[in-house]
Nucleic acid binder design. Structure first.
Length: 602
RNA sequence: GCCCCUGUAGCUCAAUUGGUUAGAGCAGCGGACUCUUAAUCCGAAGGUUGAAGGUUCGAUUCCUUCCGGGGGCACCA
């Protein structure tokens, strides 16, 4: 207590604007300061007249100290770092502030309201694409953007201006620009400032399209310097924490997010053109469902109840089908309370669409054409080395065949070996009965054990059930090899509680997962619409949950009641947008395609 | 959670493997320069080597703990 309250730390703490969320109690800096002052006599061992009056400030302070020691420590560190910021940095910042003051002293507003009539830099370039080196024109253009580079030469200088569409060179000469404006550019403008320029187009002797500046104005002063003009931001931490700095200094980074936007727009356009309705369903849900994952939990004060952030929009979108909307889609964030990795973020974007009166093969056809459209929109180069051929028909192979092909194991072999209800007799290498009679789970496990090379790579082999082991075999021996786009069809029913049973093969469902680049990118079913069957599936999930499966889906009675209202047969598809963007932009991690990714310290 | 790697000037990187006063480029500061584009040239400045301990005559370098970041395992899309 005394230590926490003593001198420097107290003043440091109370100088911080906000300490954030202290458990379920939000403590403002002011409230904390008040509490600290109130209990100061206690901490200093002075007599206290009315101890009860200290109860509240003390609890505020203890809460702050107890719940948030880590956060306080961090704030203190940052505060100390701020205080001790080096002279070099201080000088750089002071120089910019000095010029800000000088600009104001000139009677110029360093933060004006607008700059009208500007053209995208790419359009200016396009307008003069045919000109040769040394060519002059009389056309003037207005452009606006950030000053990225400057090459001064006394009475003349070249500057590079960057906007969202590209970069263009500007020339300032003391001959053609009035003295005040020339001095403004030379003495008061810094790299990183936002400028509006009007200038006449010509092509330099080295062949670079250039605008000779006729007038210039500062559109916003940058008080912090941009990163290294050649290398940009290299520090991964800074790139993600200060994305704005990454974006302003990296054309590649901007291109990634432009491509992302175009990919999402392509889905929206293609589905919209085909009569699909974009809808928005709850993100805060009273019960989560539609996928196997652990949810984030939150609390609504007015309703006095626990709420979950959705892990998928699936169940609500199916209710839209019940309601007759027939073709719906939703693009949005899902939230899963799981680990971070180059492929995983706690919030990620999916698109799901549902089409009444269609089944899963039709869904696969539509998925192929949608992703082709998305790839086209992103400008994906199908011919590049190692490119994923989204432009060709995708391979389609069943779950069972894919596992058979990769491992030699027939997941359905037990059907031929059935000797009683749920009883199967193991055969030897020649197919002769061995006399060992086991259940379905053990039948498959023994088949895997017979191949020691495979068995070695499966953890906890002995505890896996038939569906779990089947999934494991696919994940371990098939998935990593699926570089070119592939549909894996017909998954075990236990893994697919929301999919219709396969119309001919017992134990399987009408489901597919699409893979590319060794990753799952889409998942679809012929949607289960028999409410009684759905009820039984949920009950089975409940049993898995009770036996310790944290990801089993909860029983959603109101969803079953919606099905009782009558849901048309339908196909539903979910596509992971982030992973698709990773592939289509050649990025290597999900953090590179999410503007402000969650980092380890969330 | 566990394992491995990593943190040097505002930015991008060095430092002969433990050895004198931690060096460059960019940016910034002072100066020169009217076709440059990584502009060039001259000058001065900029560092508690993430933090705290320890070992040592001597630590950016080795050890411990803590704080960031990256990769891997497990879970997951």
């Amino acid at each position: 207590m005394v230590d926490l309250l003593s001198g420097d730390r107290l003043s440091a703490l109370t100088s911080i604007e906000s300490l954030g969320d202290l458990g379920d109690l939000i403590v403002s800096a002011a409230a904390l300061r008040e509490a600290a002052e109130a209990i100061a006599p206690l901490a200093q061992g002075e007599p206290v007249d009315d101890p009860r009056s200290l109860a509240k400030p003390l609890s505020v302070w203890l809460r702050a100290a107890g719940n948030q020691t880590k956060s306080i420590k961090r704030e203190l560190t940052e505060f100390a770092a701020k205080e001790a910021s080096s002279r070099a940095e201080a000088e750089i910042l002071a120089a910019r502030r000095g010029r800000l003051d000088a600009i104001r002293a000139e009677g110029i507003d360093p933060f004006p309201y607008s700059f009208d009539g500007q053209e995208p830099i790419a359009d200016v370039r396009a307008a003069h694409a045919e000109l040769e080196a040394g060519a002059e024109t009389q056309r003037t253009h207005r452009v606006a953007g950030r000053l990225a580079s400057r090459r001064g030469q006394g009475g003349m200088s070249f500057l590079d201006l960057v906007d969202r569409t590209g970069r263009i060179q500007l020339q300032a000469t003391s001959d053609t620009l009035d003295a005040k404006q020339f001095a403004l550019l030379g003495d008061l403008v810094d790299l990183g400032d936002l400028l509006g320029v009007e200038g006449r187009a010509f092509v330099s002797q080295r062949g670079e399209l250039t605008l000779q500046i006729a007038s210039v104005e500062i559109l916003a002063k940058a008080l912090r310097p941009p990163p290294d003009k050649r290398h940009g931001l290299q520090d991964a931490d800074a790139k993600y924490r200060r994305r704005e700095v990454d974006l302003l200094s990296s054309e590649a980074s901007r291109a990634t997010f432009i491509a992302r936007s175009r990919i999402v727009a392509a889905f929206r356009r293609e589905l919209g053109d085909d009569g699909f309705l974009e809808v928005e369903t709850p993100i805060l849900q009273t019960l989560y469902g539609g996928a196997a994952a652990e949810p984030f939990v939150t609390f609504h004060n007015a309703l006095d109840r626990k709420l979950y952030l959705r892990i998928a929009p699936e169940l609500y979108l199916k209710r839209c089908l019940v309601g007759g909307l027939e073709r719906v889609f939703e693009i949005g964030k899902n939230f899963r309370n799981e680990g971070l990795s180059p492929k995983h973020q706690p919030e990620f974007t999916s698109i799901e669409w549902y089409e009444a009166y269609a089944e899963y093969h039709a869904a696969a056809d539509r998925t192929e054409s949608l992703i082709r459209a998305a790839a086209d929109a992103a400008g994906y180069d199908y011919e590049a080395e190692g490119a994923i051929r989204f432009d060709r028909p995708w391979r389609r192979v069943t779950f069972v065949d894919a596992v058979q092909e990769a491992t030699g194991i027939d997941l359905l072999a037990h059907f031929q070996a059935q000797v009683g209800d749920g009883q199967y007799e193991i055969t030897d290498d020649n197919g002769d009965p061995t006399g060992a009679v086991v259940d379905q789970d053990e039948f498959l496990r023994s088949a895997v054990r017979a191949k020691p090379k495979l068995a070695k790579q499966i953890a906890d082999l002995d505890s896996l059930s038939w569906p779990q082991l089947a999934d494991e075999l696919l994940g371990t021996f098939v998935e990593p090899s699926l570089i070119q786009p592939t549909f894996i069809l017909d998954h075990p029913v236990e893994l697919s509680p929301l999919a219709k049973r396969h119309r001919t093969i017992d134990g399987l469902t009408e489901r597919w997962e699409a893979y590319a680049n060794g990753q799952e990118i889409a998942n679809a079913f012929s949607e289960l619409n028999d409410p009684d069957e759905q009820r039984r599936r949920f009950e089975a999930q409940q049993r898995y949950s009770e036996s310790g499966d944290a990801e089993a889906q909860p029983y959603d009675e109101s969803f079953v009641q919606a099905l009782e209202q009558g849901m048309p047969p339908a196909a539903g598809v979910g596509v992971g947008i982030d992973r698709l963007v990773i592939m289509l932009t050649g990025s290597s991690t999900i953090r590179d395609v999410i503007l402000f990714p969650a980092l380890r310290e969330l």
